[in-house]
Amino acid sequence: MSEWQPRILAILCNWCSYAGADLAGVSRIQYPPSIRVIRVPCSGRVDQLFILKSLQSGFDGVLVSGCHPGDCHYISGNYVARRKFALLKPLLEFIGIEPDRVQFSWISAGEGERFAEVITKITEDVRKLGPSKRLVKKT
């Protein structure tokens, strides 16, 4: 059997990070094929529950990415998102989910290279942690 590969959900905002992913693609920048992408209108649309639910359904890691602070297409969506993520962090700690499994980043439409770097980093971080426990008890 082939080696275990992490599966990571990438929730990307339509205006910056998704376009950043696109740029990485058209620029033929290499990055690990570990992500499945969901495009959202804005990182502010991401409810903390989306993240918990995806870990429960079997993703080994979650990346949420939006426009850089100050550059939101909707002016302030990513500021709100940032607060929500800040609130989620202590909770993840409380649940016992390794902090590296859930990452946040700001990637602009021009940062194809940075997109590849971020994906490479989260893939390696999650690979080190191993498969997610899907919110179930260790046996």
Partner: peptide, 13 residues
């Protein structure tokens, strides 16, 4: 969650 400051939470992202 209804408000924010522009300069805060620099460790996220």
């Amino acid at each position: 969650v209804m408000v924010f400051k522009e300069e805060e939470l620099g460790d996220i992202g």
